[in-house]
């Protein structure tokens, strides 16, 4: 589907935001470059920072194609950066001693650019997918990028009410690393603990916001530790000990092991989160559901939203709408 319906759904919830940040991500939008990592970069100018990024990428692989991301001026949206995209193939022979050399090169270059090159920020780095975001109202950001011209099979969208870093394009959601994209409503009170955990596992937090740790946690637990999605959610929003104590032995042992091993990955504070990967999405809330989450399921399509109204905007005839329990994952898989 193209991005028009998702734009309408998100714009319907304008009063949840403040016009200072909105964004979209779509999977399946670059069928011409399916094997390349699509790096979306905000450049402050295309002279100095860009030549540094070009150099760094050329060192670690081949830039198959690059161009400015087409944008269209909007009266209410002030352009702060030049959005650029690279289609990049890393040279995996250059990453010694890694089981996933391509991904590790991407992580290394993304973190290197974001923490080391002034005036450049990589905000999207997966294959055949891309994030589009800016500081502005949902409809303006959508029109700025003309997201209705992209066709994807998974869409996430987010409308921001910033308190910490208003007006910063990089602070808008979705956050992305490799295949993982995250939209997040909430504030993570365990951020200090989670940040230390991901940083001690080689990630660098550079976005001055708590949401990026969610992407890194999913990458660490999902890609590196190979946990299935429902176990990742069990680690991030675990069952209470009271519940675990009353489980059957096998189940109890499993949940206890997850809590002990992944204690520092547990996320506290109010949140509703949807994470996407090329093969599906997972949505969940904090353990006491301090933020809303509504699910719509029409058999072929899964919708997850903060508000039912947004789902009904996309699909007015939908019948199966429900609210999942606190901490319970809602998983949608892509069926080909």
């Amino acid at each position: 589907m193209d991005g028009s319906a998702i734009k309408d759904a998100l714009s319907l919830m304008d009063e949840r935001g403040s016009g200072e940040g909105a964004g979209y991500v779509a999977y399946g939008i670059y069928p011409d470059f399916p094997d390349c990592y699509a790096l979306h970069v905000f450049f402050d100018n295309i002279v100095e920072p860009k030549s540094k990024v070009d150099d760094l990428l050329s060192k670690w692989g081949v830039i198959v194609h690059q161009e400015e991301i087409p944008t269209y001026e909007q009266p209410r949206l002030k352009r702060q950066h030049i959005p650029w995209r690279y289609f990049f193939k890393p040279n995996k022979d250059l990453m010694v001693g890694s089981l996933t050399p391509e991904e590790d090169i991407i992580i290394k270059t993304v973190m290197g650019i974001n923490s080391g090159i002034n005036g450049a920020l990589v905000f999207s780095s997966g294959k055949n997918m891309g994030v589009f975001k800016a500081a502005g109202w949902p409809e303006d950001v959508a029109n700025f990028y003309r997201i209705d011209s992209y066709k994807g099979y998974i869409w996430l969208a987010h409308n921001r009410y910033p308190t910490n870093t208003p007006g910063w394009w990089g602070g808008a959601h979705p956050f992305n690393l490799l295949d993982w994209s995250v939209v997040h409503n909430g504030e993570i009170t365990s951020y200090g603990t989670n940040r230390q955990y991901v940083e001690s596992n080689g990630y660098k937090c550079t976005m001055s916001t708590d949401t990026e740790v969610v992407a890194y946690l999913f990458d660490l637990l999902g890609r590196k530790h190979e946990l299935p999605e429902n176990f990742i959610v069990k680690a991030l929003a675990p069952h209470f000990w009271d519940e675990i104590d009353s489980m059957q032995p096998r189940e109890r042992e499993l949940n206890r092991a997850i809590r002990l091993t992944y204690g520092p990955a547990m996320m506290n504070g109010p949140f509703g989160i949807v994470v996407a990967r090329s093969d599906g999405i997972v949505g969940f809330t904090d353990r006491i559901k301090l933020r809303p989450l509504v699910v719509g399921d029409d058999g072929d399509r899964l919708y997850i939203s903060s508000e039912e109204a947004a789902i009904r905007t996309v699909d007015p005839d939908i019948e199966n709408i429900y609210m999942p329990k606190a901490g319970e994952p809602v998983i949608g898989r892509v069926v080909i």
Binding site: S190, Y191, G192, P264, N268, G269
Partner: peptide, 16 residues
């Protein structure tokens, strides 16, 4: 008061 309901999330949480 700190919005934390499990001790693991306080551990090493210097942000607080």
């Amino acid at each position: 008061a700190a919005g934390i309901n499990s001790i693991e999330s306080l551990r090493g949480n210097r942000e607080r």
